[in-house]
């Protein structure tokens, strides 16, 4: 008997790890659809849909609480080691990241309620583009984590640069519209916050990519990605 199986000798251990994995999959799916619905609500100026997104945020929170409890339980009762340990620790942290993603999506939906009462502004198109990039990134990174795919996780991680670039250019675009006409300032300020939410979602997805990588390969820390979101410097250039 030398083979290393996929399954634990103690079957209930597999069941408990499976519960964690299922909860993460459901959380990931929910966060994805929350983000998709928030984008839809922004695009079609649909306040009812935005309200639903806000109401559904509690489901993600509840799943996160479940993951927290289940993680503590497995750590206490099974004393996991090696890849099991990495899976459990990663699950705890990934659940935190997904919860933040869903929160940011719900916040975007909330701001859309104000936007829907104001005339449409042009930068919305770029904002939606940014949101869709974030949405794809979230989907892919959760797939990579659940599929134990470290290579895919790295590819997704690198995509955060694109999000940062789009965010920076959107930032400039929004500034331009605000300068052009002061009536744009209110909607554009909300757009700016939503854009920041989407940019943050990209960062959380990056964190999940690193956790997926750690879970599969056991390397604690990847080399830090050079962050090139230069929006923090915009407006400070000499004219």
């Amino acid at each position: 008997m030398t083979a290393t199986g996929e399954h634990h000798i103690v079957k209930s251990y597999d069941v408990e790890l499976g519960k964690l994995e299922d909860a993460l999959a459901r959380m990931g799916g929910l966060a994805e659809s929350q983000l998709a619905a928030a984008l839809q609500a922004l695009d079609s100026r649909d306040s009812d849909l935005a309200g639903k997104v806000m109401a559904n945020d509690g489901q993600v929170d509840a799943l996160q609480s479940f993951v927290d409890e289940q993680t503590v339980k497995v750590l206490a009762l099974r004393a996991p080691v090696a890849d099991d340990l990495r899976s459990v620790v990663a699950a705890l942290k990934v659940a935190g990241e997904i919860e933040r993603i869903a929160d940011l999506a719900a916040n975007a939906a909330k701001r859309s309620l104000v936007l829907n009462r104001l005339p449409p502004v042009e930068p919305m198109r770029s904002l939606l583009r940014l949101g869709r990039l974030a949405q794809v990134m979230v989907k892919d990174v959760i797939d990579a984590h659940l599929g134990h795919d470290a290579d895919k996780a790295l590819v997704v991680r690198d995509r955060d640069q694109e999000i940062d670039d789009v965010y920076s250019s959107l930032f400039r675009e929004i500034l331009t519209y605000m300068m052009e006409d002061p009536r744009n300032i209110t909607p554009c300020s909300h757009l700016m916050f939503i854009a920041k939410n989407f940019e943050r979602i990209g960062d959380h997805a990056t964190n999940i990519a690193e956790l997926a990588h750690f879970r599969v390969l056991g390397k604690a820390q990847l080399e830090a990605r050079t962050k090139k979101d230069d929006s923090a410097f915009i407006g400070g250039e000499p004219v």
């Binding site: 030398t2 290393t4 199986g5 634990h8 000798i9 996991p80 080691v81 090696a82 099991d84 990495r86």
Partner: peptide, 20 residues
């Protein structure tokens, strides 16, 4: 290292209880 990221599959199978 052995208990967080063993290099060998047999080691991993043994210490995690997925052996045999």
């Amino acid at each position: 290292q052995i208990f967080t990221a063993p290099a060998n599959d047999l080691t991993q199978g043994y210490i995690t209880g997925r052996f045999g």
